[in-house]
């Protein structure tokens, strides 16, 4: 597995991935839907799959002393590592924003644990759609990305939309308990014990969903790729 992972990083990484990872700096933009930065990372991962495909990676890997299942698992682990790098960068940016950007984000979710939880859900959606879809053929990277992009954007619109709506409702002076709860506990920096608890639960749930979806995605991908002929 170590050798396969090394192969992924030395041969399959597309240079654009680093640019997309650097787009975590978008979290410094005031009033912006920060989850979009995660979509760009998914785009970077898709570029890596394309790069591998165009370079005949499937056949090269098939000639190495590894099974198809190991090859798929290594690629899934590669995806997880990239996503976790982005999550760690996001956490650092959120910590920085706690001090440097105290204003509420009018464009989506605030810098918070909730944002990281939503990012984990986004990556879970990407993994569960993209990986099994790609490994159904082993080469249709574009179709798989299109399908996953639809899922990702529905999630971005739903989650950030909900935060924007809660802001708007609260600013209008109408007091609806549901939106007040979001405004005071989810879409805010976790400065109170209650908000921190709610966001920690959200983060735990997001992490759990990420782990379950990614393991399931890897399992389905392995099963599907076994049936694919490497040509």
């Amino acid at each position: 597995m170590k050798a396969l992972l090394s192969k992924e990083f030395k041969l399959c990484v597309h240079p654009a991935l680093f640019i997309y990872l650097a787009l975590i700096l978008m979290l410094l933009i005031p009033n912006y839907p920060y989850l979009v930065s995660c979509f760009f990372v998914c785009n970077g991962i898709f570029f890596c799959f394309q790069q591998a495909r165009e370079n005949g990676d499937a056949m090269y890997t098939a000639m190495l002393p590894v099974s198809k299942a190991q090859a798929v698992k290594a690629r899934c682990l590669f995806v997880v590592i990239i996503e976790m790098i982005d999550v760690v960068l996001m956490a650092a940016m959120c910590a920085f924003a706690l001090v440097a950007m105290p204003e509420t984000n009018g464009g989506g979710t605030d810098h918070s644990l909730s944002l990281i939880a939503f990012a984990l859900v986004l990556f879970a959606i990407f993994n569960i759609i993209y990986l099994p879809s790609f490994y159904k053929t082993g080469y249709k990277a574009g179709t798989a990305f299109l399908k996953s992009a639809i899922g990702i954007w529905i999630w971005i619109i739903l989650s950030d939309g909900m935060m924007i709506a809660s802001n708007a409702v609260m600013e209008s002076g109408v007091d609806i308990a549901f939106f007040r709860f979001i405004h005071e506990n989810i879409d805010c920096m976790p400065k109170t014990a209650e908000a921190l608890t709610v966001q920690a639960i959200l983060f735990g749930a997001g992490l759990l969903l990420y782990v379950v979806c990614t393991l399931l995605a890897a399992k389905i991908s392995v099963k599907r790729y076994e049936k694919v002929s490497v040509a």
């Binding site: 090394s6 041969l11 056949m59 000639m63 002393p65």
Partner: peptide
């Protein structure tokens, strides 16, 4: 497969990489 050497036609993979880069990856296996 560790005890089998495979040549499926010419080496047509990762054409933009140097031979030494491909060998460095391959020998790890």
């Amino acid at each position: 497969k560790k005890r089998i050497g495979l040549v499926l036609g010419e080496f047509n993979y990762y054409k933009r990489k140097k031979l030494k880069a491909i060998a460095a990856v391959t020998k790890q296996f």
